[in-house]
């Protein structure tokens, strides 16, 4: 299995020289199996960059298939949807899977609202030429996708829940745990440990440098240290800090990685836009 980070930034897309090495696009992560099956997590602005690449191949001919897992529907995780060009070619088979954002509000209604005529000239999901199949996940269940087995789980994110994913393919496991804040940093909830159990790569929310966390408590995001606790307890083999703060420049992220790695028994990297990485 290979992974490519197309967007690693949290909350807000950042352009400019200070954000070139890690990248300024919001959340979007692609996984590809050895046999070439593909899976996308989240539709932040990073997805628009992946879209350009997809449109050089079968998606341009309307012969592409792609399942997309959504962690949740905060804007930085879906803002690339109206500009994800494979939607505009008839024949592409695109599925969006995710949990209902809140009780009483369906995933489909939420995405429809994003494309309402006020906000988007697309004026509704029905105008995407490719169509889109929206499938509601019940967190805690397992989803089988072509080439991938996915265990899902709900984790707390401020006033809502996000869905975390444990994705297995080719005998390797990647755990995606972003937009999460545990009741206490040193006490990750059991679901997090189950999802990250002996994962080859744990991708974890690291919105705040440890020193900045105290004044940012309650917004639903983790300090870098929280991912280390999960990785160590769950026996993960590698930790990728993710969902970087929009104000964190490349140099600041370097410093966070250095400080975090010094206090971690598990190897630590910061997720960065760029090339495919082998798991």
């Amino acid at each position: 299995m290979k992974i490519r980070f197309w967007g690693v930034r949290g909350s807000f897309a950042m352009s400019g020289r200070e954000f070139l090495r890690y990248g300024g696009n919001t959340t979007s992560v692609e996984l590809v199996t050895d046999a070439g099956k593909r899976l996308l997590i989240d539709l932040g602005t990073g997805a628009t960059e992946l879209a350009k690449e997809l449109m050089t191949g079968e998606f341009c001919k309307g012969q592409g298939a792609l399942p997309i897992l959504l962690s949740h529907t905060h804007l930085d995780h879906i803002q690339g949807l109206p500009f994800f060009s494979p939607f505009f070619i008839k024949g592409n088979q695109i599925r969006i899977l995710g949990a209902a954002p809140l009780s009483g509000i369906s995933l489909e209604a939420t995405l429809q609202n994003q494309l309402s005529p006020h906000y988007s000239p697309l004026n509704g999901l029905e105008n995407l030429a490719a169509g889109v199949k929206i499938e509601t996940i019940i967190p805690g269940t397992t989803v089988t996708l072509p080439g991938f087995e996915v265990l899902t789980g709900a984790v707390p994110h401020g006033s809502m829940w996000t869905t975390a994913y444990r994705i297995t393919a080719d005998g390797k496991t990647v755990t995606f745990l972003s937009d999460v804040e545990y009741p206490a940093i040193d006490e990750p909830i059991p679901a997090a440990l189950v999802l990250a159990h002996e994962a080859d790569l744990l991708i974890h929310d690291a919105m705040y440098a440890d020193d900045d966390y105290e004044r940012s408590k309650g917004w639903g995001h983790s300090p870098a240290r929280a991912g280390v606790v999960v990785a160590e307890r769950a026996g993960a083999k590698k930790l990728a800090l993710f969902h970087h703060n929009p104000d964190a420049t490349d140099d600041m992220i370097d410093a966070v990685v250095e400080r975090t790695a010094a206090r971690s028994a598990v190897p630590v990297i910061a997720a960065a836009e760029g090339n495919y990485l082998d798991i």
């Binding site: 950042m14 352009s15 954000f19 500009f83």
Partner: peptide, 11 residues
Amino acid sequence: GSYPVPGAATV
């Protein structure tokens, strides 16, 4: 227009 575009091409 349309959406924010980070990266080396828009610095």
